[in-house]
């Protein structure tokens, strides 16, 4: 059986289109030797056919390619016609792009910022125990958060759907020795009726830092960086005293209303400021419950509600949109489109 190397030698040696045409007839024409050999395969035994068939087919394929290429090299018009034949048309379809959910987009932007400041990203279970959702966070037994009206309990005793991402703080304190810096985005549940502005499921963003010599100044400057990142450098923020059992001292970060610039409007309920969440220095009781020496370590924590932020950013008027599907995404539009 002739080999492809021998055919290649002959093709390479051909000096004209005529010689190439002769080689075509010799091997690939109706009575060409390779074509004849392929036809003859059916005469062979199964064993022979299995052995010789693939080899012969491969020689045939390569010979066709070699001779065609050589023919093109002798004919510019042949090249043109090959290119024409090879040309493809553009599609009229537009490429669609996938979209991340606005909550995910926002969480990513925040995570990116905090990762750049050395924070880890933490997540935890959504079915929680009373201990990690309340007790280890210094929430008193008769605190309203524990009421059936506020907390959704599941049928199994002492288990509930977490009402706050502070439960992630409690578990991180229990599971990791300080120092650490974490942020923890997550879904929380409260026993509320669903309507345009309220939902029983919403999204929180928790931040916790435990280390030596951590101060309120660190907390304030961290939140200032966050708000500037999310709302621009000219954002005006303030910190006022606020009570939360988890922290002492506790503060409420407010942002000057971006709609009325502090004059008072319907968005800020006339006060000129928008409440952004809660924060403060971690209560020493919480550190002690986690077995952390509060004389050596201090820390801060903050918790922010994401839904209102994202509603404002994406101009979403109905909170139910978040968990209601993706009809709102335009198929060809991307978040950072040009």
């Amino acid at each position: 059986m002739i080999t492809i190397d021998e055919i290649k030698k002959q093709v390479d040696a051909a000096d004209s289109a005529e010689e190439v045409s002769e080689l075509w007839q010799k091997y690939l024409g109706k009575n060409g030797s390779l074509k004849t050999a392929v036809k003859g395969l059916k005469e062979l035994s199964d064993q022979e056919r299995r052995e010789q068939g693939p080899v012969l087919q491969e020689i045939l394929r390569q010979a066709e390619e070699l001779i065609k290429d050589k023919q093109i090299s002798f004919s510019s018009s042949g090249l043109e016609s090959k290119l024409k034949e090879d040309a493809e048309k553009l599609s009229n379809e537009r490429a669609t792009v996938g979209h991340l959910h606005p909550i995910t987009e926002t969480v990513r932007a925040m995570n990116k910022l905090f990762s750049s400041m050395g924070y880890s990203i933490m997540e935890e279970r959504e079915i929680e125990t009373d201990e990690f959702c309340f007790k280890r966070l210094n929430v008193p037994d008769d605190h309203s958060a524990r009421d059936m009206q506020d907390t959704i309990y599941i049928e199994e005793p002492n288990l509930l759907l977490r009402t706050q991402t502070s439960s992630i703080e409690a578990r991180t304190l229990a599971n990791f020795p300080p120092p650490f810096k974490i942020v923890a985005p997550g879904r929380v549940y409260r026993n509320e009726k669903v309507n345009k502005s309220n939902h029983f499921i919403f999204h929180h963003y928790q931040g916790v830092v435990v280390g030596e010599n951590i101060t309120m100044r660190d907390l304030f400057s961290t939140l200032a960086i966050l708000f500037k990142k999310m709302y621009g450098d000219d954002v005006i923020i303030r910190f006022r005293n606020k009570y939360y059992p988890e922290v002492e001292p506790g503060v409420g970060p407010d942002m000057q209303c971006f709609s009325c610039k502090g004059k008072g409007c319907s968005l800020c309920k006339g006060v000129g400021w928008i409440e952004m969440g809660g924060a403060g220095m971690i209560h020493p009781n919480i550190l002690e419950m986690a077995g952390i020496d509060h004389q050596k370590y201090s820390g801060f924590a903050f918790g922010l509600g994401l839904d209102r932020w994202v509603m404002a950013k994406y101009k979403i008027g109905d909170i139910r949109t978040f968990l209601g599907g993706n009809l709102a995404y335009k198929p060809y539009q991307h978040e950072s489109h040009i």
Binding site: S120, M122, G211, R217, F220, S221, R238, F239
Partner: peptide, 22 residues
């Protein structure tokens, strides 16, 4: 609290990364 100035960035210290693989 506005007596606590917060113009300076928080001090950055390298703490262990405990982000889970998930």
């Amino acid at each position: 609290y506005d007596a606590i100035t917060f113009n300076a960035p928080p001090k950055i210290e390298v703490y262990p990364n405990i982000t889970p693989d998930s």
